[in-house]
Design a protein around this nucleic acid. Structure first.
Lengths: 349, 349
DNA sequence: GGTCCGCGTTCAATCGATTGAACGATCGAC
DNA sequence: GTCGATCGTTCAATCGATTGAACGCGGACC
């Protein structure tokens, strides 16, 4: 029969070990897997163990997977790995998976479009035991796959979908509170796309927080979650809302754009504009001024998501991760400068 | 027999499809896989295609893997995903793997120690068809596993190991040349651990470049590849080598430390000290001043590594990736300031 | 009318491991 | 001496798909 390019000597299988030890394959399997209800003579066990060692036997995971109809691996799809938030989430997932004896397959949507579909297919092919979807999935698609063993991460979808999300509302409230504490009253929000669940929830929470505190609600500026997005959004804030003395930015990248544009326009941070962003990471720490940031417990999110995936508790309502959300004050926030508002719209680019 | 918690309705197998279509499993398999030498009546094909659609049949990849003794997935072990260099490499590998019809399993050493060993085990268990090792592997370990289907990335080991590396020498020469072009003569190198193959090659290349150009060789300062490492290394440079007007730093993180420390000590960059680093990424762009950086073709590295892994050409000598290495000048480098050298050692800190 | 050919399909071995059930031997009890 | 229990081991079905070889049938040819 076919014998495709197999590298090196033929593979050592359980049958070889059994022959060498002069026993049945069944015994080898039970010894190797340390079956607790196996009664075996010491001498026989020794023969098997020796044979395993001498032949360098390693069980085939594929055969095992087929027999057990599970593979012990789960998929994770993130928007992009080069975004530190998702890189950190991935590492967290990996650690959590490892403690559960699982292996993670990662895909980033940005590296190639359609990774989500591909991984759903791997799930259907039973190559994955479960799937963690951190990349945004539209409602139609979500509905289509929500009967599978899937957990949505950082996004909420209709039951029976399972979701694990940050308490974005809390993060935003903490950001607003920190600014109010410093004396700010006119606070704006620079958010992300409305189609994106997490940023939509943040924008929503911002409106609520401002309303609750009786502060003026300045229109929420929406832009892409990128440096350029931040640049344009802050332009809009500075040009159209001259009373604003502080902004809560939905993510680090946009915040970097905000800082960059302020520097270009000669708007000093934090004297003329305080900046607080959601998510904390290395980038937030190395820009200047360093960003005051609301740290999100990425590690917990990963753990909870995995628990939801493997958990027998099919709690079909969103898990909200809250512990560990905290503000780190750095140079980008401070008391509002006393005195006249900033100059009007900026000309040129 | 055992029937572990299987979710939803029993799985649809090729047998169900065969029964439904009233044919043998073999035919189903050949139709689904579009076997080119299959001769089949149109009507039969239609019955099979219909049955597949009606039952929602998806072949089990595990069964297929067992039969074909290959899984179509390869492992990748990186030092840490939260380092943008490795995140980018991972995305590149993913893209390259995808075009080859392969799937990548990623592990980061930092998320949990011993990931390399774990993945070597998965390779032995035939769960992985091959393994890309970007995390540093010591010589003993490398020798032990080099007969497997493994490619070392960004590190060179003895044959029969296969390796794919950047042309670190070229990168360093370009950095030095760029500084010389600006008028620098006294250039120092801030490198990484000697045990680490890539940083050792960079240090080596630095000595050679300086010698070739007839420039004074200032001792090479070695430190950890971290922000703190950069902080301490630049202290050493500033304190002990007062004539130095420029440094070539082996990676971005250390370079960030260099900038930070310079700011603290009041050493202006680039007037008093020019800084060039190896690797370019978002962090290099957002710090201030933005870092002049030697971009490394991470994408090519990924592609070449995958080619080496699956390639039939068992070229057992290192593949050196050179195309795309280029300097991007930014604010951290400039002509040396005319005038007296900097003040002496700094106190406190 | 017998032989041969080729088309369309089925047969059956195989990949490697797992596991409930069956089996034979030994031993103790009555 | 028979029966039953226990111990240690083997039997054999099973997971789901792949694939070379074999098979049956209808038509063509001499």
């Amino acid at each position: 029969m076919e014998q495709r390019h197999r590298r090196g000597p033929a593979r050592v299988t359980i049958t070889h070990v059994a022959e060498r030890a002069g026993v049945d394959r069944a015994l080898v399997s039970r010894v190797v897997n340390e079956d607790p209800r196996l009664r075996i003579r010491d001498e026989t066990r020794r023969r098997i163990v020796d044979a395993v060692a001498e032949l360098g036997y390693t069980p085939s995971r594929t055969a095992r997977n087929l027999r057990l109809s599970r593979t012990g691996s789960v998929g994770l799809v993130v928007p992009e790995l080069t975004n530190p938030v998702w890189a950190a989430l991935t590492e967290a997932m990996e650690g959590a998976a490892d403690s559960l004896g699982l292996t993670v397959l990662v895909a980033s949507e940005s590296s190639r479009p359609g990774r989500t579909d591909h991984f759903v297919r791997l799930l259907d092919e039973q190559f994955l035991d479960g799937l963690l979807l951190a990349a945004p999935v539209d409602a139609t698609e979500a509905a289509r796959i929500s009967d599978r063993n899937v957990v949505f991460v950082n996004q909420v979808h209709e039951p029976p979908a399972r979701s694990v999300v940050f308490d974005d509302g809390l993060a935003i409230r903490m950001a607003v509170d920190a600014l109010v504490e410093l004396g700010h009253i006119d606070i704006a929000h620079i958010g992300g796309p409305r189609e994106r669940d997490a940023t939509r929830r943040r924008a929503q929470a911002f409106s609520e927080a401002v309303e609750r505190l009786g502060l003026p609600l300045h229109p929420i500026v929406i832009g892409p979650l990128s440096i350029d997005g931040g640049v344009h959004s802050v332009d809009q804030v500075l040009d159209e809302h001259s009373r604003v003395t502080a902004v809560v930015v939905a993510n680090v990248r946009s915040a970097v754009g905000v800082l960059r544009r302020c520097a270009q326009r000669g708007v000093t941070v934090p004297d003329e504009l305080s900046v607080v962003c959601v998510h904390d990471n290395e980038v937030a720490q190395v820009v200047s001024p360093p960003l005051t940031a609301v740290a999100m417990p990425v590690h917990s999110l990963g753990e909870r998501a995995l628990q939801a995936l493997v958990g027998l508790d099919s709690a079909r309502q969103p898990v909200i991760v809250r512990d560990g959300i905290a503000v780190t004050e750095r140079g980008s926030s401070g008391p509002p400068r006393a005195g006249p508002p900033r100059a009007g719209p900026h000309r040129g680019g």
